[in-house]
Design a protein around this nucleic acid. Sequence first.
RNA 1: GCGGCGGUAGCUCAGGGGGAGAGCACCACCUUGACACGGUGGGGGUCGUAGGUUCGAUUCCUAUCCGCCGCACCA
Length: 897
Amino acid sequence: MVEQIVAKSNQQSPLGSYDAQEMEKRIYDWWMEKQFFRANGDTTKQTFTIVMPPPNVTGVLHLGHALDNTIQDLLIRMRRMQGYDALWIPGMDHAGIATQTRVEAQLSKEEGLSRHDLGREAFVERVWAWKEQYAEVIRSQIRRLGASCDWSRERFTMDPSLSKAVREVFVTLYEKGLIYRGNYIINWCPRCGTALSDIEVEYEEMNGALYHITYPFTDGSGSLQVATTRPETMFGDVAVAVHPDDERYSAMVGKSLRLPFVDREIPVIADAYVDQEFGTGAVKITPAHDPNDFEVGQRHHLNAINVMTKDGKLNEYAGKFASLDRYEARKKVVAELEALGILTREEHVHSVGHCERCGTVVEPWLSTQWFVKMDSLAIPAKEVVANGQTQFVPDRFAKIYSHWLDHIRDWCISRQLWWGHRIPAFYCADCGGTTVSREPVEICSQCGGSRVSQDEDVLDTWFSSALWPFSTMGWPDDQEGDLARYFPTQVLSTGFDIIYFWVARMIFMSLSFTDQPPFEQVLIHGLVRDDQGRKFSKSLGNGIDPMDVISKYSADALRFMLVTGATLGQDMRFYSERVEAAQALVTKIWNASRFVLMNIDANIMGSLPPVEQRSLADRYILHRLHTTAKQATEELQAYQFAEAGKTIYEFFWNDFCDWYIELAKVTLYGEETAQKIPTQQTLAYVLDQALRLLHPFMPFVTEEIWQALPHDGQTIMRAPWPEFSEALKDEKGFLEMTFVMDVIRAVRVLRHEKNIALGKKVDIILRPKSEHVAVLRTAIPYMVRLCNPNRLVVDATAKLPEERLTTVLPEVEIILSLAGLVDFGAEQKRLGEERRQLEFEVNRLQIKLGNDSFIAKAPTAIVQKEREKLEGYMERLEKVVAELTRLASVSNRQSAE
RNA sequence: GCGGCGGUAGCUCAGGGGGAGAGCACCACCUUGACACGGUGGGGGUCGUAGGUUCGAUUCCUAUCCGCCGCACCA
């Protein structure tokens, strides 16, 4: 017994007008209040975990963060709906140099003070205040994006427990001999006043000069010319090197040269490092200011003379040039050497290292720093990627990763900053001993003296970031809770620019301290660029604030645009037109949902109508829904976000809105009441399921609509993900409806070509092959609504009127009849064109099928398919030719009259 | 120098051995009771170039040109 319910077409929709800003805020607040983001620890469920790459507390999020977070949220939401205990850990990074620099700039601007004026303790307090302020800004931005991360587990790299992890790792590595302190040449940023690691230096090609300087021999036997780009470092020269095989210089090896200005005697040495072809073939050796020279110096047991101060000025070793800035000094040195007639110059392009943070030219500088010994750590890190335990997506990034590890050098981890994790090393003023300790040290471990002080420096920010996947889960203190349950994580999503900085380091640290790689898959996405393909940068002023985009459109639209804007690993351009297109989809979903809500009765649940009550259109849309769910799920699980977005988009817009809703109107607005309930049920069911598929892309609008629909459960966030069910597969219904749709489309095309407006009724005669008669008769109500016939005849042997328009589909002839309106000449021309095209296809296929090697070698399925195509074309051609023949005789008769 | 990515419709991008797709833009018609951020139709591409493999190449291979990006060297 089916209760008769009449659709109330004038019923007020529970959905009002679409107001993204109000709605998105309200829904996010509600989600938070209900704690839907919390991983619940349900042990009957499998876990799915992502740690969010912690944004720097320096400032605001950009579109790259928005993309990264959307990808993660998409995955987390899908997995949560699939029944996983999904955990997404948010947090922030203290970003040592960057944050300190920002606070220093603010301090200088607002109070005219330097950090030294304030003192370390007071300055660090300022940075904490800054951190609190920006952390809140960043949190609110992440929320506006709709991120369903577990805020109850938010972490900061300088939280006490994470700081403890840092000390634990440092001390352990030290004890294993993998962390050491030493006097080595490092990259120094004179502006930031700190050491940098190799990867914090960015090389840039610059126009410079290669200077040839003549150094005289001390014995008066002439001179030797060296070539250098950095004459100002000559005060640190301790030798001149030539290649051992270089005959020009072989007699000079072992002799002494006199260094101009400072009159120091330096030897000529032979070292294979020298390239005979370059410059003069003689290199001045300055171990304190060039990494290669440093090595040469070590090999030859030469002293290293540091001639520069921390801020990039020459020191007392430079004699009268002391206290000059390095570039000022270069000018003066060059001028004086020129005046002495012992310098010449040639133009020279070379690459110069710059500080990644501030752009200052870095100085290779000899100083005492802490290092991580990398060779042994790199081996397992390479191995887990090589053996597939950890996969990069796209996998080409694995090569970049491995290449880096193959050529890795020790990691300089000390930074001469105040903001960060203070190095847990303590030095004794009495015995000079070093104590490295997890806890504060009062007494020297070596001499028992009490005059100990902690190392002034802090650790590289990336040292703590490297521990993020496990330090956020309670390591080292709590290894039974989250760590045991949620580690290792499943996916990491990040940009290719931090594969070395972060991804590689997390992998080797996790392997060292948890014996597991930190994630199964690493998704690498490209950069978001501006509409001209340029990087966003402050200097270009082309930045786009994602929050502005959300304010103008919606987070749902921004998310959809970002995540469908490019293939993973590929850069994308940001076009507001594309956000508009995404917004159009959001609006379309909204409006279609309003239609559904207006047309279903209150007690219609989103359950399916019984099979026997389903109309052809119902069967069609259900089949499409389930193939869409299958395809989209596969695509999402393969991280093909753009493809998945497109799959769902096409289903929703083309199949559901353009076709199904229009077909549903036939029953909803029709007289046949028995069909109304199944139609309503189908509408509600399909919309519900489609919203679930869309939810990871556009969480807000889907939640809002889902709440308005009849539903089970509290939130769409935890509604089960649509599964592809074989029971709903209905290939036959799908093909039959598709056939009907082709007929409808053909009628519309014909009407359009002949300028017969849809409002004008015409007689329509369909002459299908006998096996299609039943389907077409069933579909008469659809065709009545969508083709607007005066009279509609479905009959393979229908008698045809003289005045008619014909179009031939593979299995059916379509005839429009309209007395007095047919232009026989124009019709001949139109069908002539149709014939031409059909002949072209027939010809093409005949050639193909006439090719013996095609028949012999192509897969039989392909051959079969081509044969069927040929058959179809030939049948159609035959009918078109017949109609043309008829038209010819009619027009002959007419002209004869 | 080594390696990678990209070159497909006017624009932005998918796709990928069996006569090429989407969005936007464009043209025509349509204010039909969810939606003009809409509907119905339509035009538009020798898939960078040249070879090769193949029955068949836009897709695979090689070379080449153009654009972009890593890495290394650079006295």
